[in-house]
């Protein structure tokens, strides 16, 4: 299996990249197939909207295809696509902030086992959980982009600090400090419910 966050790449992925660069659409399709879910969920965690996540992740692959000649076959495919996608995601986020737009469907994009537990716990607990869920969605949506990005990679993708650092091309210390700021900010926003 390909190591997709570091600098190591397996022979099969390398072969697909080389064939894609030669114009083989089927090979590029296989690369997309291997990484589309991961790209989609990374965008969803950040943007909180199914339609935006789908559109942006597909746009990132389309741009990757357009500039496939620049791709180094000796390096993994996903970090490269992720770098394209994060620029698109940050642009959307900046536009949303400029427009003062609120996160669409603020509570429809994540599920948590807290809610499932609450269903078994009765109406009072359910109310409490639903308040927590609502506040949590709002708190994540309100984080600064770079903090939200690290939180999403850590909590939703379950990556290690080293993997996040390699993916974002930043030192591990920066990953930890962004994560700390994100959690501190969440703790502040969730004060009273956590």
């Amino acid at each position: 299996m390909a190591e997709t966050t570091g600098g190591v790449i397996d022979a099969a992925e390398r072969d697909l990249i080389i064939r894609s660069q030669a114009g083989d659409r089927a090979a590029f399709g296989k690369l997309v197939e291997q990484h589309m879910k991961r790209a989609y969920f990374a965008a969803l965690g950040f943007l909180g909207s199914h339609d935006d996540a789908l559109d942006i992740s597909q746009e990132a692959f389309a741009r990757a295809f357009d500039s496939r000649a620049k791709l180094d076959p000796g390096r993994p495919f996903y970090p490269w696509v992720y770098q394209i996608m994060r620029r698109l995601v940050f642009n959307i986020s900046r536009d949303r902030k400029a427009r003062g737009a609120k996160l669409e469907a603020a509570t429809g994009w994540i599920v948590d086992d807290l809610s499932a537990r609450a269903l078994r716990e009765g109406p009072a607990a359910r109310l409490e959980r639903s308040e927590l869920e609502e506040r949590l969605h709002g708190a994540i949506a309100g984080l600064a982009d770079q903090e939200k990005e690290v939180l999403v990679l850590k909590e939703f993708e379950d990556l290690k600090y080293r993997e996040i650092a390699e993916l974002l091309e930043i030192p591990i210390g920066t990953v930890m400090s962004r994560l700390y700021s994100a959690r501190k900010s969440l703790a502040k926003r969730l004060e009273g419910v956590v």
């Binding site: 789908l54 599920v111 994540i140 909590e155 956590v194």
Partner: peptide, 18 residues
């Protein structure tokens, strides 16, 4: 303790599959 509580809450969250 504060960070562990936050980790418990965010760790319980998963993204809704399409």
């Amino acid at each position: 303790r504060r960070m562990e509580k936050i980790k418990t809450v965010t760790g319980a969250v998963t993204l809704k599959p399409p």
